[in-house]
């Protein structure tokens, strides 16, 4: 399964994800987060989490974008990954919502190859409007 990064496709790292409902002790955790989870429950453990993967069950279901923003707003600075059914046209939304990369399946990678994921350089209105 390829992962789409700002530098292009790369092979997925085989991370063992855990559920956010039962975080084990320890650090360097990777959390697999459904898109109806409450990110506030993780705040105490942010320091122990290296990666959070937010699920996109369908590309038309945009909850994951808000969850990503909430996690960033709550102070999460670890790796943030979108997994599931995003299409290349949503890559800019993912990046601007705070995701580091997007994990896609092989079939989609074949249908929408790397060059279709390259975002045309574009500032968002969000940046334009932000106070200096």
């Amino acid at each position: 399964m390829p992962v789409v990064t700002p530098d292009g496709f790369r092979a997925s790292d085989n991370i063992a994800y855990v559920s956010p409902d039962a975080l084990p002790a320890g650090s360097d955790l990777a959390v697999d987060m459904p898109n109806d989870a409450d990110p506030r429950t993780l705040v105490e453990r942010f320091g122990d989490i290296a990666t959070i993967r937010i699920a996109f069950p369908a590309f038309g279901d945009g909850r994951g974008f808000s969850l990503a923003r909430q996690l960033r707003d709550l102070g999460y600075t670890g790796h943030l990954r979108a997994g599931g059914n995003l299409i290349s046209d949503q890559y800019r939304h993912a990046r601007q919502s705070g995701f580091d990369d997007v994990e896609i399946d092989d079939a989609l990678a074949e249908r929408q190859p790397e060059e279709q994921w390259i975002v045309r350089e574009q500032r968002s209105y969000r940046e334009k409007l932000a106070a200096r």
Partner: peptide, 16 residues
């Protein structure tokens, strides 16, 4: 107009 700019391609709210 401010709302137009803010809402245009708002990354969080394109798939409501």
């Amino acid at each position: 107009e401010l709302l137009r700019q803010w809402s245009t391609d708002h990354p969080e709210f394109a798939f409501l």
